[in-house]
Amino acid sequence: MSMNRRNFLKVAGAAGCTLLAANSRPSGAATVKPAEKDVGEFYGMLNDTTKCIGCRACEEACNRQNLLPPPKEPFSDEKVLDRMRDTTPDAFTVVNRIPNGKEPGQPAFVRKQCMHCAQPACATACLTKALEKTHEGMVKYNPERCMGCRFCMLSCPFDAPKYQYDSPSPFVRKCVFCYDRVVKGEQPACSEACPTGASLFGTRRKLVEIAKQRVATNPGKYHSYIYGEHEAGGTSWMFIGAVPPAQLGLRDNVGTASYPEKTSGFLYAVPHIFILWPTLLFGLSYLTSQKSEKEDGHGKE
């Protein structure tokens, strides 16, 4: 047994080294948390639902820009507005007509696509960094890194990422905020195509100012709330409208806490466990083996 104790220490050393190596990983588990200044300089999109006329020009521009397959119904077909639609792997943005209870003749039109959160749940959840928050504020997708675990889909509070289930070599599909255009200094295809300025592109900080101004100066026209200013810790895409967000079909169960923070507590506990558990376990194991040795000693007397 005394021999064993020495071996114990050898194993302890070996395991310790491995632990140190392992420790460096989880302790780096800082979440995607840009500095406050950066959030302001992210690009964003302000969707003024009082201005949207439901022409679907944004859908068409998005389709062309992203080389998506042509839809079953042409973009000029207004019948698609009769049902509520969600984005699909082949349609990164869709416009829905939301009936207006007070004035049936004046429905609201609300776009639906990735919200490009300031601290995105999907990019935090991605274990290969296939989804990444860029400095410009887009949540970009690097298809070559993706392994298809779909944890991003589980994590996204808005259910924005969609998946190509019918492909043997599938990808995650969602709006990437026309990353390639924006870095070249152009605006996204959808806002460029928007004839009424309902989708307004700019830096997020400026857009928040504009939204606040519109809401403050037209209290009769707007409901006083900017959806996306604080949702899920703040999103790059924001909505204002005549009625509360829930009545526009926007999710009101998202909360204002940032999603990475939901798991940061757990992840920060990991290095502590990695230090405390082996220490306790080695100690316990040492003590119990001492005890049984003592008993043996008794036997020999």
């Binding site: 588990a29 800082a30 274990l127």
Partner: peptide, 22 residues
Amino acid sequence: LGRPWNVINPIIGNAFGYSSVL
């Protein structure tokens, strides 16, 4: 996994998603 041949990415990959519980 949709793309199981990429399963080694988080192990050897050039991009470790430390922030992910997965």
